[in-house]
């Protein structure tokens, strides 16, 4: 299992989609390809945009199917971030059904 501390990369407001893409391509996809579980640690992040979360996880769901979410845990998310992640996962599942 690997843990990705996002605050170090994004600052307290996670909005930079380029950073999300880098994390996805360089950390998440290789980990999932190796069969590892991933913890995305939002400790210290006050808020995130839907675009950031979409750029972080939507392609994983498209590439590996919605079950890939079972391999990802979202740690230390405040209420707003939890809701944004839920929105993205919901619409990606609706899209793939």
């Amino acid at each position: 299992m690997i843990t990705v501390k996002l605050k170090n990369k994004t600052g307290s407001f996670a909005e930079n989609k380029d950073i999300a893409r880098d994390i996805r391509l360089n950390i998440l996809i290789p980990a999932i390809e190796r069969g590892e579980k991933v913890v995305l640690d939002f400790q210290g992040i006050n808020s995130a945009t839907q675009s950031f979360v979409h750029a972080l996880i939507s392609d994983l769901m498209r590439k590996y199917g919605v079950d890939v979410i079972e391999k990802i845990s979202f740690k230390s998310c405040n209420e707003v971030i939890q809701k944004i992640i839920t929105i993205v996962i919901d619409y990606m599942q609706e899209s793939s059904n």
Binding site: S51, R62, Y91, E94, S95, S96
Partner: peptide, 24 residues
């Protein structure tokens, strides 16, 4: 309209665009 993006006609958008920003 949520889910409509200029980058694709596919539901769910692309890896970097969902078509949600203006709706939000």
């Amino acid at each position: 309209t949520p889910g409509i993006t200029g980058t694709t006609s596919r539901e769910g958008g692309t890896e970097s665009n969902a078509g949600a920003g203006l709706f939000f």
